[in-house]
Design a protein around this nucleic acid. Sequence first.
DNA 1: ATGACTAAATACTTTAGA
Length: 303
Amino acid sequence: MQNLSVVPDTVDAMRVATWNVNSVKQRHARLLEWLDQRQPDVVCLQELKLTDDAFATLIGPDLTERGYQFTTFGQPQWNGVALLSRVGLDDVVRGIPDAPAFGAASDIEGRAISAVCGGIRVHSLYTPNGREVASDHYAYKLEWLAKLRDQVAADTVPQLVCGDMNIAPTDHDVFDPAAFEGHTHVTPAERQALADLAELGLRDVIRERWPDETVFSYWDYRAGMFQKNYGMRIDLILAGPEVADRRAAAWIDRQARKGKGPSDHAPVMLDLDAAPDGDIGPMVPPPSAGRPAKKGVKLPQAQ
DNA sequence: ATGACTAAATACTTTAGA
């Protein structure tokens, strides 16, 4: 899986984002507008709800025009993940090695894709929901997470594990912990799966930046949950130490959850400082925390 | 209120999401 030949001689500052768009078809205009405003260099998308061909036909030209390469693992109706990059897109891995199937053995769902972008292996993930704790889907979720852990452990390129993990890391990441008792997304076994990734050195960059704040990435469409800020933080960016040490900014783009026709998830954003020439290894300390220079684009206010 | 909303196909009702 590792391929050091694709690591560039210098590593520039870059902006990485992950966003569960809940249907590219329904979010097409908003997605393009968001790309133009935020100018991310690498984007992980989830819940495409399109086949690879349909994705390429619908939005491929728009992405190419904006300088993005892209790769997808799509399905016609549900799931589907993508990676967009304008800092290289090499050594694509579709799915997780030995990932479990749900239902028919041939039915490997479109829930994981990764590639090396700007010297970092970036994963775009849509972890199974789990539905109910007593369900087959919950067992499938845990097994899928275990295989993800194995995949991450086997790679030596610096990593960014991004996506809709469908797990709230702590009670601080749900609006009402009591309301979730006995439900998926908050169980000890699911949280242990995140702890197992942390054990490999992956760090939750949003929580590191906002250690005490209430920060959510998902709000149910119903009952004015967004307006009340009754949400959950289940979309995560987990960074290997070499990457996490380059953090210049990390925030959740709540603007994208506002207005007419939003996804129920907001993008999670990470700005990385440049790494020293040819050195993508551990750094001490990172350079100044200014955001990478992008022509004519203002840094949105975090929170 | 075992709700509320959104999206896609199974399509005027069901399944899934979380």
